[in-house]
Design a protein around this nucleic acid. Structure first.
Lengths: 244, 244
DNA sequence: TGTACATCAGTGAACGCGCGTTCACTGATGTAC
DNA sequence: TGTACATCAGTGAACGCGCGTTCACTGATGTAC
């Protein structure tokens, strides 16, 4: 009776229930984080909220770390989605904002709309939580950085990017960045890669200061300062790349 | 018998013991933070480590929050000191690094040397900890920002700064920044203030990404990228301020 | 088609541990006369 | 100079709460024949 559009084997009752329960646990845990902060997450509280006992959770997640990892992965995806969507709908606004600036504003907006999840991703590492080594979170990160680098560099040729005007990079750093671009999907020449990291830090720094309350003295005008900073950043970035 | 150079009334035995004990509590708590992370701080563990009972701590700090606040204030001061000291000893290095870049590297170095304290200042707010409204921490912040703005803008006239080339600021933001400069000691014209915030975000963002492990794929070369970014930032900043 | 067995979601009970804070009290230190 | 009192650092005992994880077990769901 389940919709079966793609010819996948239909799920059994057990499997459907399991999927629903897993989803409920994740949603509840995420809600707890958004309400109490990432460090307040407790398995017992989640179970209580779902009307079950703690032990039952162990049928769905082997332990607390696994649950947290799942939420982190989900949050990374949500952030990447927000950036992507901001870019995709950029032309709809009639403003003259460069799409790159729109992308950074998508990043900022998601962070401000979900401060606790942003803290989960970029704040103090959780106590007693050991992040897994696998690439569960890396995928979303790569996806997001592809969006940024496409908006920043997409309209330049590889030769232009390789000739970007920066202080000279050491041979070791150049070599390291060359290596990175082999296994990563993004194929940026070293100077452009360095500029990307710098820009990422700039964007992230302003957002993190704002979300964590260290710019509160600027009051209502943080969005305006952010936009100004990102516009300037983009202008200066373009000025570093030689004409074709 | 205590050294009494400044003519202050000599401390009684009780007062000296109290000062020593307070210092010991603070040092131990700070050490616990540097060893276990800010979220692991526990009064009981601190007391245990000092060979006393928990209750005794309440003679020195009214509660856990007060102890944390004292450590935060101390850390802010240490960070400001590190930046100041970097600038003060800048000329000793024979390099051609601008003093502003040296200042930002002082910021970065302190953060890397004391990642857990840096997390305490700029990471996820502590659970169950309510930051006090008073300006205990503000003083050090202002001091540090004065160093940066002196290095960034000290050699320009007020007229030059007021004419800095940025996208136009809204009248509301201009007014707000004018207000800020009245009660703060720093007297930056609005466009310069906006550029200062942007630069602060840039510096902070790169440091926070590095300290929290989000730039680990750059490996050993994070210092080089940071220096490049800060050099570029300074160059671009200067380019925005018209000649006298 | 029904039956025997395997799988799985859930519970009850428990282990062993942590925490911040309050209260009533003792003994040392400091002070006024 | 000694004496009576006040202040303060520290303890013992307790309150009331939280947590993650493991174990043995029941009853529902799924599967092989």
């Amino acid at each position: 009776m389940t919709t079966d559009v793609d010819g996948a084997p239909p799920l059994s009752l057990r499997e459907r229930r399991r999927a629903v329960a897993t989803r409920e646990i994740l949603d509840t845990a995420e809600r707890h984080i958004t309400e109490q902060g990432p460090h307040a997450l407790s398995l017992r509280a989640v179970a209580r909220d779902l009307g079950m006992t703690v032990q039952a959770l162990y049928h769905y997640f082997p332990n607390r770390d696994a649950l947290i990892t799942a939420i982190i992965a989900k949050a990374y995806d949500a952030l990447a989605d927000a950036v992507q969507e901001a870019v995709d709908t950029a032309h709809l606004g009639a403003g003259d904002l460069p799409r790159m600036v729109v992308a950074t504003e998508g990043y900022r907006s998601w962070a401000i709309a979900h401060p606790e999840l942003f803290q989960l991703l970029y704040g103090t590492p959780l106590r007693n939580y050991a992040a897994p080594v696998d690439g569960l979170t890396t995928r979303a990160m790569v996806r997001m950085s592809m969006v940024f680098q496409h908006e920043m560099f997409g309209h330049f040729t590889r030769e232009q990017l390789a000739a970007a005007d920066t202080p000279p990079l050491s041979p070791e750093l150049r070599a390291h960045l060359e290596l990175l671009r082999q296994d990563g999907p993004g194929a940026l020449p070293p100077p452009a890669a360095a500029l990307l990291f710098s820009a990422w830090g700039h964007m992230h720094g302003l957002v993190v200061l704002e979300v964590f309350g260290h710019l509160s003295f600027v009051g209502e005008h943080q969005a305006e300062i952010f936009r100004m900073a990102m516009r300037n950043m983009l202008t200066e970035l373009n000025a570093r790349i030689p004409a074709a």
